[in-house]
Structure formats: structure tokens, C-alpha cells
Computed example of a mutant assay.
Amino acid sequence: MYLEEIFGLKGKVAVVTGGNRGIGQVVAEGLARAGAEVIILSRSGAEDTLKKISDAGSRGYHIKTDVTSEESVAEAFRQIVERSGSIDIVFNNAGICLHKDTLEASVEEFRRVVDVNLTGEYIVAREAGKIMMEKGIQGSIINMASMSGSIVNIPQWQCSYNASKAAVIHMTRSLAVEWAEYHIRVNSLSPGYIATPMSVDTPKELKEAWMPLIPMHRMGKPEELVPAVLYLASNASGYTSGSDVVVDGAYTCV
């Protein structure tokens, strides 16, 4: 009962972008297990995620959404408010990565990464914040950053990804201060190497290079991010805003 009072999300409406697979899917299930209704926003279907939400004893639905489009996001949020009545939590997770040397990557490729990882999160956070203010919701927005926003990954080169995630961290701080008077909390989550398709499907030589650099000598599990998200989404973090929560097996410590 005590933990439910602090970390429970019963009666809350949570939105997860990019929740059709990987970290987004696992976090969506975790939010559902904590009692939240979970809405998935993604460009493709989310049948597997919706089944996991249902199996967790909660309810949810999917809305096809392009996070880089203001119109698409606004329409998705309009439907959520109409159907669910509120938006209390946003896990701003949609993102892409490009492993390419800077001189080989095109400007268009750089812009695409920044458009999804930074501008997309800005559009989603902005729309969510607007609704929270209008309805007087003391909500929580959790932006997906990365340890790559604080360090430079080696041996792969991914300037566009690193730059986008560093910007997400500072955008989070800026929004946290700007929206504090509305009791809207904005924090970011910075995972290290997590065993998802984005990292597992990378070349073997890269993964072999990563392991000695991680003090724990292993990749994290997506499930190991869920407790941090539940903390940031729940009443437990009522005085936490503008923080970047790093979950990286101590990678950024050395």
C-alpha cells in the first residue's frame, strides 16, 4: 500500500511515443502495471505493446503519429483528451541513431536525426504542456536523452545523435524552469547501452569494443529503466524537475 501511494499511477493517463518496440514498449508495460492507462503514439502499429498493456491489467490504444509533424501530434493529443479526458504523463521516447563519420554523413541525414530526436520531442512536450496548463494538470514529462548527451561514444562516430541528445538535456532543463509555476515537471532519462534492437543489431566489433568501457561489463536491460521512469512519472518525484537521470552501468563516471 505504501509503495502504491508513492509510485502508483492508478487513474493516470500516460502517453508513450515510439512505444511499439524496444524501450518504449517495455516502459509502456511498466506504466500499465503501475495502473496507468497507456496510449501509444508511433508511425507503425503497436499490437504487441497493446497486448502487453492488456496482460498487465490495464487498458490502452494506439494512434498513428509522426512526432516531427505539429499537425499530427496536435491531432493525436486532441483525440487522447477527447477519449481519455486527461494527459498526466508523457514518456517522450521516439528517436533514431546514425553511426556515420561526420564527413561521410550528409547535412540531410544530420537534420533528420535532429528533427526526430530533438524537434520531435520539443513538439510533443510543447503540445503536452499546453494541454496540462489549460486543464490545470500537474503533469510529468519525461524526455528521452542518452548518456551520449554527456559523453562522446567510441569507437563509432555519431555526431548527429550525440548533439541531439545533449540538446534534449538542456531543453529539458529549460522547460522545467519555464513551466515550474504551472506545476508541470520536466525531466530526462539518459540510458547507457541497453539491449534493444537499436544496439543489439549493431556490428559485433562495436559491441566487443563497448564491453570493456562499461564498468559493469554488460549492457543494460530495458526493464532496468522502468523504475526510473516510474519514479519520474509518479508522486515520488514531486520535487524533482529539470533533472537528467542517468542509467548507464557507471559508463559516464570514467
Rank of each mutant, 00 (worst) to 15 (best):
L175Q: 10
A228Q: 14
A176W: 03
S190W: 05
G192D: 10
H170C: 07
M198S: 03
Y231G: 06
I214E: 01
E181Q: 14
K221T: 09
R173G: 09
T172W: 04
A228W: 15
V177R: 12
H170A: 03
K204M: 07
W210I: 02
I194C: 03
L206Y: 07
G192H: 12
L230F: 02
E224G: 02
V226L: 01
E181L: 15
S188F: 11
A176Q: 05
H217P: 01
E223V: 04
A195H: 05
G192K: 10
R185W: 12
E205I: 02
V177Q: 10
I169K: 06
I194M: 03
E181Y: 13
P191R: 07
E181I: 15
V226H: 00
S190K: 01
R173P: 06
M216E: 13
E178A: 14
Y193T: 04
P203W: 11
A166P: 10
T196N: 08
K204Y: 00
V200K: 15
I214S: 01
E181W: 13
S164I: 02
V168I: 05
S164K: 04
M219A: 09
S188T: 12
M216V: 09
T202I: 10
R218E: 09
L225A: 04
S164R: 12
K207H: 15
S164Q: 10
A228H: 13
K165M: 08
Y182G: 10
W210S: 03
V200P: 06
H183W: 13
G192W: 05
V226E: 01
Y193N: 09
M216G: 02
L230P: 03
Y193F: 09
R218A: 09
A195M: 11
A167H: 01
A176F: 08
M216A: 12
E205P: 02
G192N: 05
A180E: 01
I194A: 00
V229W: 04
V177E: 05
E178S: 13
I194V: 04
A166G: 15
G220H: 04
H217L: 08
A180K: 03
M219Q: 08
R173N: 02
V177F: 13
L213K: 15
Y182P: 08
K207E: 13
L213E: 14
M211D: 04
P197E: 13
A167E: 03
P203I: 06
K207L: 07
A228V: 15
L189Y: 07
H183S: 14
L213V: 11
E208W: 00
A163D: 02
R185D: 09
P212R: 13
E181N: 14
E178V: 09
E224D: 07
M198L: 06
S190V: 06
P203Y: 10
V229S: 04
L175H: 10
L230M: 07
V200E: 15
V168H: 07
I194S: 01
Y193C: 04
K221N: 09
T196Q: 03
S190C: 13
S188I: 15
V177T: 06
K207P: 06
K204F: 00
W179D: 11
L206F: 03
P203F: 01
M171D: 00
